[in-house]
């Protein structure tokens, strides 16, 4: 019987998926990872709900709508270590550029002014998620244990962070890994 591998989740909240693409930029190192961890939840795997007993959750994106807010709390409840993964989670970044404008103005521009027929603001909230008043960084919504910077973090940064976390250490970033943008 092989020992249980650490259970890792990656989550995509309000962002562009660039951090996840940078995760995939680990390229052949992904093959090594299959021996070292189990990816139990991620946009790139089939999973139904955020599972229990997650060892490490990498969370990309700001918290921008009500479903993401709910999910963030589930992640916290079910995960031992929560990592703010990339600048949108760390600071709000590009996702939070909308905060200086009201939601009504944002929605009105796209769905009323820039519509040629049937102008209306989508509000069927049984099927789509209502925006929160502002997009907020993850640590303002839940407690976060570690922060990985970058828009996106480079594959080398992610490899370092994941390798440390899988060995039970908090990643202590040398200055070479610390950059915004």
């Amino acid at each position: 019987m092989t020992p249980t591998k650490p259970r890792v989740a990656t989550v995509w909240l309000g962002g562009c998926s660039g951090c996840h693409m940078s995760f995939l930029d680990m390229d052949e190192r992904l093959i090594e990872l299959t021996d070292k961890m189990e990816l139990v939840y991620s946009p790139i795997v089939d999973t139904k709900e955020f599972p229990r007993d997650v060892d490490v959750a990498l969370v990309e994106g700001a918290v921008s709508n009500v479903e993401q807010d709910e999910l963030a709390h589930t992640i916290r409840r079910n995960s031992r270590i929560v990592v703010s993964f990339g600048d949108c989670a760390v600071s709000g970044n590009v996702t939070a550029l909308r905060n200086r404008v009201t939601n009504e103005e944002l929605l009105h521009r796209s769905y009323v002014e820039l519509a040629d027929v049937t102008p209306q603001i989508p509000r069927e909230y049984e099927t789509i998620a209502e925006m929160m008043k502002e997009a907020r960084p993850l640590h303002e919504v839940i407690k976060v244990d570690a922060f990985v910077h970058g828009c996106p973090p480079t594959a080398d940064t992610i490899w370092f962070a994941v390798s440390e976390l899988l060995q039970g250490r908090m990643p202590a970033f040398s200055p070479v890994y610390l950059r915004y943008g």
Binding site: S64, E67, R100, E105, L106, L107, S110, I128, A129
Partner: peptide
């Protein structure tokens, strides 16, 4: 039968 997209980010305004 409908395909719903569930996220809005507002680039057309905040830029």
């Amino acid at each position: 039968a409908r395909f719903h997209v569930n996220e809005f980010r507002g680039f057309e305004k905040f830029c």
